[in-house]
Design a protein around this nucleic acid. Structure first.
Length: 804
DNA sequence: AGCACGCCGACT
DNA sequence: GTCGGCGTGCTC
């Protein structure tokens, strides 16, 4: 007998294992590991992934696989293995790992329907139920649940007159276009045209089109050429003169876009030196991890492009990961321009259907290269020749929910599997990667010179406390204001950067200092100007802005914190003639608006580009000569050991936007902590010194890269319960782990309460703890009951990036 | 996760 | 007595 081991789509501890199913005779040769199937599971039907084909099962009474969802496996052997590896290393469910590797369109949709069991007894149903079934055979349970008839239905189900039917629906819908072509020979068409009555002008035109042009044509195009309606085509189809066919097409998110083909540039000496070891590695089919450390504007992308070119010439495939935020059309153009239709692009801006189509191009081997955000690391290539991770330090490569994987780790896993190089590129590598490069675990490649030998921009650090003392209470320092005027006069462009991360527009009473907090979370509410309301970013709580302070009834309650809107307002006051483009979540939420605004700025239709994080990287505008950072230190005070590193990275990235071409660039950094090394060293473009400095800090505080981290966060409605459970977990881990592990806690999370649930943490710092995952699994099992009762949540993050 | 089964309290 | 509350345990 043929048996399939199936991982079912039920993300729960108890079902996180394989279930065996009998393979019906007709499918014994069809079903393969990695295919999606529908299986009966208890009383319902669920989707599942076949992971193994066996000849027998320990389980005696097997149910049969109900249906097959794929013609060929959606997960190959390698991806199945990656799924198991993720389950093990991130402590997630296997099904969650599988689902993370596939486009959302392949996730099943479940529907529960009610059908009439026996139509002969239909009249026995109450009239109320009968009215539901007027002119239809099935009723969706979802509809019933919304009505008041739930109990009536349950009664009839119990009497056996109605039946529940469980449906598993594939979301994956392929886009089809209607094509029209002749169904008869040319001669027959001519005869038909001659026999047509005089008033059938459109039919005649249509047939004449096919007489001179018998190729299939899309209905849409045909209607345009002939200027007629569907009815005339339909008439000809029903007479058997034409026939309609459906053709599957891909939704092309880059339709209507023309990509100018580019050819390789000549590499500089430095670039040559950097690419050589990568190319050697490609030729030798050897796995190695390269860290390409290159200052902003040093031409890393050209090195990627040429390395990819070599890989594609060898008949292999390539993956390029780019942070979501810099997956701009500019970036995509560079790859599409060089490799044309061999490129698939995967990013969150695409619709589910578009993502699925791009994924299918990869799956069917129609493309050789994928450029995408984090999840593109799971591209189902089978002959990988290189993986490139650009802006290696970006935290968006770490997924913040289950499976909590880091794309870099997956890349290295795949690199070992395919014996191919991994290239991590950055102007500001993570300390983890740079430390590994220093220890020769990764091979370091350095690009110190900017292309065209352009100097890095001059950076001026402005002490905003000093400005305040001198009576300047605006958000622009004297120097920045001066420079703004100067650049405007010269007709040059300016980028103003507002670092909003960890800093929101909170509302405070100026008399008593009372800050409006969320009643369910220990975090300040954010003021949303668009609807004059206060909103909690964690639980969604909303309330109108109060007229007076709830604490002291003062009227002087106002919002603090500088939003882009406020900067824009102030700009219009001090520089009314400046044309400003504001880019933030509000102005870029509509699809394509991001690109539109950038094009506008690029074409010189504005003087100042004002924005948040999203303008920090990847942008390259020749006319930008001034970059202003309004508040450099807003995230320096976050409770995160990477705060200094992130500040340094951001300032370096932003400064890199200035003077990339002929005109020299200037950068002004405004800060309240000008003495902080992350700010001074960023202003001196001194990564090496920053690295040394920060390494000392990390060493003395036992943080990565000297120690690994694992963060356990416990949450519960009752404070006492959270504290005692976290306490128990902490002491249990102390017992299980070695002496050298540092176990901190229990302590309250940086956000101690979210959605009325208290949050406590335990942090584990360690160098080598083979027992850690086993110990953590034991912890999960011990509290399983309370977790499933939904009172307790336990989140375990191995190598966390967010400590909140 | 769902869903059935089963064991207790409060109703016609 | 039975309806329905939720706690418990199973799903090949």
């Amino acid at each position: 007998m043929s048996v399939a081991s199936v991982i079912v789509d039920v993300p729960a501890k108890q079902t996180d294992r394989a279930f065996d199913y009998a393979i019906p005779e007709k499918w014994t040769t069809v079903i393969q590991p990695g295919m999606r199937v529908v299986v009966p599971f208890g009383p319902r039907k669920v989707q599942g992934f076949v992971i193994e084909i066996k000849t027998e099962s320990e389980f005696s009474k097997l149910k049969k696989i109900q249906s097959i969802l794929d013609i060929s496996p959606v997960l190959n052997k390698e991806l199945l293995d990656i799924g198991f590896w993720l389950t093990k290393t991130t402590l997630c469910y296997t099904i969650s790992a599988f689902q993370a590797m596939l486009p959302a369109a392949l996730k099943a949709k479940y529907e529960k329907e009610i059908i009439i069991s026996d139509h002969n007894k239909q009249n026995e149903l109450t009239s109320q139920i009968q009215s539901w079934f007027q002119n239809r055979n099935v009723v969706l349970w979802e509809e019933i649940e919304k009505s008041d008839d739930v109990q009536l239905f349950q009664k009839e189900i119990q009497r056996g007159l109605l039946e529940v039917s469980y449906k598993v629906k594939d979301r994956a819908n392929r886009k089809l276009i209607r094509q029209v072509e002749p169904a008869v020979s040319e001669d027959e068409m001519k005869i038909y045209v001659d026999g047509l009555p005089k008033n059938a002008v459109k039919q005649m035109e249509l047939v004449n089109h096919f007489i001179s042009n018998p190729k299939p044509i899309s209905a849409k195009e045909l209607l345009q050429i002939i200027a007629t309606t569907d009815s005339s085509i339909k008439a000809l189809v029903s007479k058997g003169i034409l026939k309609e066919t459906k053709l599957e097409v891909y939704r092309d998110p880059f339709e209507d876009k023309y990509f100018k083909r580019t050819s390789p540039f000549e590499l500089s000496q430095e670039q040559e030196t950097a690419i050589k070891p990568i190319l050697d590695c490609v030729e030798a089919e050897k796995h190695d991890v390269f860290l390409m450390y290159g200052v902003t504007g040093s031409g890393k992308t050209e090195v990627y492009l040429q390395a990819i070119d070599a890989v594609l010439k060898n008949g292999k495939e390539a993956i390029v990961l780019v942070p979501e935020i810099s997956l701009t059309p500019q970036m995509v153009n560079r790859f599409k321009g060089r490799f044309g239709s061999q490129v698939a692009v995967l990013h969150s801006g695409l619709s589910a259907g578009e993502k699925y189509d791009e994924w299918r191009k990869i799956h069917r081997k129609e493309v050789k290269l994928v450029v995408g955000a984090r999840s593109a690391i799971f591209a189902p290539f089978e002959n990988l020749g290189i993986i490139i991770i650009d802006e290696e330090h970006e935290s968006s490569y770490k997924q913040e929910d289950n499976p909590r994987y880091h794309a870099r780790d997956v890349a290295i896993y795949r690199g070992k599997y395919h014996n191919c190089p991994i290239v991590l590129g950055s102007a500001t590598p993570t300390l983890e990667s740079f430390a590994r490069a220093s220890k020769q675990v990764y091979k370091l490649l350095t690009l110190r010179k900017r292309m065209n030998e352009r100097d890095l921009p001059a950076v001026e650090v402005i002490d905003m406390r000093e400005e305040l003392r001198n009576g300047n209470r605006s958000m622009f320092s004297g120097l920045l204001y001066e420079k703004l005027q100067e650049k405007l006069e010269n007709g040059e462009q300016i980028v103003l950067f507002l670092n909003k991360r960890g800093y929101s527009s909170f509302v405070m009473c100026r008399d008593c200092g009372y800050v409006m907090n969320c009643p369910h979370c220990d975090i300040s509410l954010t003021y949303h100007r668009s609807n004059q309301r206060l909103k909690c970013h964690y639980c969604g709580f909303e309330e109108p802005l109060p007229k007076e302070c709830p604490e002291c009834n003062s009227e002087y309650i106002r919002f603090f914190g500088t939003g882009t809107q406020k900067v824009e307002e102030e700009l219009s006051k001090i520089l009314p003639e400046a044309r400003v483009i504001r880019m933030d979540v509000d102005t870029t939420s509509r699809k394509g608006s991001h690109e539109k605004l950038l094009t506008e700025f690029g074409e010189g239709r504005a003087d100042i580009l004002l924005g948040t994080q999203m303008i920090a990287k990847g942008l390259d505008f020749p006319n930008v000569t001034l970059v202003g950072v309004l508040t450099a230190d807003t995230m320096l005070h976050l409770p995160d050991f990477r705060a200094a590193e992130k500040t340094f990275q951001l300032l370096t990235q932003v400064s890199g936007r200035a003077g990339r071409h002929e005109l020299p660039g200037e950068v002004i950094i405004q800060t309240y902590t000008p003495e902080h090394y992350s700010i001074t060293l960023a202003s001196q473009h001194d990564f090496d010194q920053f690295y040394l400095n920060e390494m000392m800090v990390r060493k003395s505080h036992a943080y990565p890269p000297f120690y690994y981290l694992t963060l356990v966060t416990v949450s519960h409605q009752e404070l006492t319960k959270v504290v005692s459970i976290t306490e128990k977990i902490t002491s249990f881990l102390r017992m299980q782990l070695s002496e050298s592990a540092i176990i901190l806690g229990p302590v309250a999370s940086p956000i101690p309460r979210i959605n009325d649930r208290y949050r406590y943490q335990c942090m584990i710092k360690y160098k080598h703890e083979p027992n850690l995952t086993i110990a953590l699994k034991t912890v999960i099992e011990r509290y399983q009951q309370e977790i499933s009762q939904n009172q307790l949540t336990l989140s375990i993050d191995l190598n966390p990036y967010m400590l909140m």
